[in-house]
Design a protein around this nucleic acid. Sequence first.
DNA 1: GATCTGGACTAGAGCGCTCTAGTTCTGGCT
DNA 2: AGCCAGAACTAGAGCGCTCTAGTCCAGATC
Lengths: 339, 339
Amino acid sequence: MEHVAARAGVSRALVSIVFRGVPGASEATRERVLAAARELDYRPDTRASRLGSSRTRTLGVTFSVGHAFHGDLLESLYTHADAAAYELVLSGVTPSRSEEAAVETLLAERCEGIVLLGSSQSTAQLTRLAGRVPVVSVLRPSSVEDVGVVRTDDGAGLRLAVEHLRSLGHTRIALLDGGRTAGGAERRRGYRTAVRRLPALSEIVLPGGLSELEGAAAALAFLDLSPRERPSAVAAFNDRCAIGFIDVVRQHGLRVPDDVSVVGFDDITEAGYPHVALTTVRQDAEQLGVEAVRALADRLDGSAATAPARVVIQPELVVRSSTARPSEVESPRPRPDLS
Amino acid sequence: MEHVAARAGVSRALVSIVFRGVPGASEATRERVLAAARELDYRPDTRASRLGSSRTRTLGVTFSVGHAFHGDLLESLYTHADAAAYELVLSGVTPSRSEEAAVETLLAERCEGIVLLGSSQSTAQLTRLAGRVPVVSVLRPSSVEDVGVVRTDDGAGLRLAVEHLRSLGHTRIALLDGGRTAGGAERRRGYRTAVRRLPALSEIVLPGGLSELEGAAAALAFLDLSPRERPSAVAAFNDRCAIGFIDVVRQHGLRVPDDVSVVGFDDITEAGYPHVALTTVRQDAEQLGVEAVRALADRLDGSAATAPARVVIQPELVVRSSTARPSEVESPRPRPDLS
DNA sequence: GATCTGGACTAGAGCGCTCTAGTTCTGGCT
DNA sequence: AGCCAGAACTAGAGCGCTCTAGTCCAGATC
């Protein structure tokens, strides 16, 4: 910085002014400084600038490395943090690096706010964290008052899925359950509500989970059922679970959607591939990112100490080719309008 | 820090000594300081410590968000950077955030070294970057002299795949090509070498790519071939491509491995799932991570200014259930030992 | 011509650490 | 007692920025 200032014939303070883009420098000087910086290949040291200023304008994000949907969210977060003049600091969660450790490094970086993607921290941990710094939990609801929540209406998503299947004529609709993972409880609840509300449905819950592996296991359980008790449709916890399920039932000679209809959740990129063409409940990654940034930015920049945001985004059903009317065997009375 | 020092009844310098874990404090004081810090919920500010010390002991990593294999690599990098007493700073590459931008933020953080996962930067860009800071390119070779390279022997990997298929009796073995992506050229070369070296093989290259989508497209091209000219086995650019291919050929009534054998590349987690059981060429993420950290740590810590590392890790064939002997139609002479 | 105004610029004190060059204290040895 | 080594601890100057409180000066106002 010293060198740039000398080269441009100004003080260090002026260089700072130019690089922060604040008013206080004439156009001519601005260009002279920028030119000098370019020649010297100088770029401001973010560590030092964060130290010097009272604000770090930095948002920390914990995410699971290799998780496809988290990738989509990160993309959105990058874009909107940038627009709100915040920088993102990423901290990955891996099997050997806990979410707590990830959060710890973010705190040590003095991030002004923290975004947790699919957090699995306990209420106690979240409470403690939220006491230190504004926190928003994305994808996973939390009862902690100080924690902002930005999520999809998981319950509504499952209701959409079940209603879609029911409207096609299915009466035996199973849930491939997500258990204790982020959103699992809400989706299960949504499924139950829909099953109760709609006529002629009974509740069938098969253990599922986050990945293809659990979907495949659920398919085995499904195939073990006698054809009489076998559901004609399933709503999976997520797309990957649905894909694993479909893979296995197909390998056992069943056709999708002819023999069994399947709907997923998330709308990951793969679900839209023509050869997959999965009917699914779409979570809007873009929107979730927007709201997460907004939730923190509002609290940080806002004059009023607003309460933490609680944003619930409505999901949308995307109908592709993994769902259809049940085959004759399933629907007792032959329909006249089969065409 | 001030407060902690006061509470423990020592100077700030002592607190620094304790937190850096360097000798110079008695056991009693050490515990007193730690206790005081715990009570005050204090943790050192990494920005400030990096600023104060001459070394930042920080390694920057660019990676594609949502890329499964990059996730595996990150996990390994985290572990081994930690062991070498380095911190990791992640910078994600997304469709809207270029690798250049990602690198730029790492430079501004004053990382001491940079790890590029699957870089797609030009030689010119890499040359410029390597002039500023030690760089190691993981997964993608580079002719730039100053850039360290840690990669799998992609060529050998494809030779393994082809040899495996040939030894099963296949003579029409196609490559689902990866084009210009990281490793694409080397794998193509390995395929060609193997095809030339082994008897009775001819070269069949179908356009493939990084994802299931390209695999699916390749499958369509494959199915368009007349049964006579149709290969009995394919070596795919990677696992995801292989999975897309398998999906589509199965949907068209072909059986894998009975009608066509398929081998992938990478050994992503999914490949090992029982319902997928993909025969594949395994890249050792753990080892790649170890070597990437070592390559940088050696240059940074080493007294001698060693030349950048060029590490090539040998891949390993993992045989699962997507490969088998060709069916009768394919092998002209009936074998006596079919059992 | 004196006064005022506002834009352009600078001096220098932080920010929260690290680290060198000390000082002080303890205990062992002659 | 006198001396000394080494462990334990401290003072204070950075690190590369930011930011407040200025200074300086050209031009407008009366």
